[in-house]
């Protein structure tokens, strides 16, 4: 599989390490009442068939964290953005 790093260009998958679902967001509150949100954030993951936003670290390249949107069935990659831009967009929306 090839991933087009926004900084480095097209690189093979073995240069990347993965860290699961990027669509979930770290809760911001430390209020004990939000504990359920925290449990979900730390432990609960979907395993979708089809389109999936996934954290990928270009660990053998520029070391940027990316969000790769791919089809989990066909491995077709639709989009790659930096985790930074992904996070900013999430805050904006």
């Amino acid at each position: 599989m090839l991933i087009k790093c926004p900084h480095c260009g097209t690189r093979p998958v073995e240069e990347f390490t993965f860290n699961g679902d990027a669509s979930i967001q770290r809760p911001t509150s430390n209020d004990p009442a939000t504990m359920d949100q925290w449990f979900d954030y730390v432990y609960l993951r979907d395993n979708p068939k089809g389109r999936f936003d996934e954290y990928a670290h270009h660990s053998s390249g520029c070391r940027a964290w990316l969000v790769v949107t791919r089809d989990t069935q066909t491995h077709e990659i639709f989009n790659v953005v930096t985790a930074r831009d992904y996070a900013k967009k999430r805050v904006a929306s």
């Binding site: 480095c8 240069e15 053998s60 520029c62």
Partner: peptide, 10 residues
């Protein structure tokens, strides 16, 4: 320039 890995070395 490129950042890459060769023989397991960055």
């Amino acid at each position: 320039s490129a950042l890459t890995q060769m023989a397991h070395v960055g």
